[in-house]
Amino acid sequence: MTKVLPVVKLATKVAVAGGAVYVAYDSGLLGGGEEGAVALSKATAAIPPAVNEWAKYFGFEFPAAPKVEFSPVDAWNSGKPLWSTECVMYLMLFNINYVINYARLTSKTFQTSFTQE
């Protein structure tokens, strides 16, 4: 009995770990890129209703999950200036103009040249 028990223990452990790997592989979590995307879409479709059902069972309710609509291609620099880029450029120009004008108005050289005229 003392010799069998460790073997059974190890066999159980191997079975649990192997089962986890098998389930992950079988559900397409370890395959190619398209399989992974399909698995994620399946999971996002299946998990929220299941979570809501369990939450109702236990008597509380989760707030609705925020919808994230972001594609990295929108952040791609395709040569077309974005609204934020235009804002930054405008602010930079405004600042440069402001600094030049301030320097002109306050510098002695400008004032002397102005009075000399």
């Binding site: 790997v21 992950a24 979590l29 992974g36 995307a37 990295p72």
Partner: peptide
């Protein structure tokens, strides 16, 4: 790119889960 990000989430999640097991 969308597929890449989705696949990255799935692979990291699966690796994390298997690692925990």
């Amino acid at each position: 790119w969308d597929r890449c990000l989705a696949d990255c989430a799935v692979k990291v999640g699966a690796g994390l889960g298997l690692g925990i097991v």
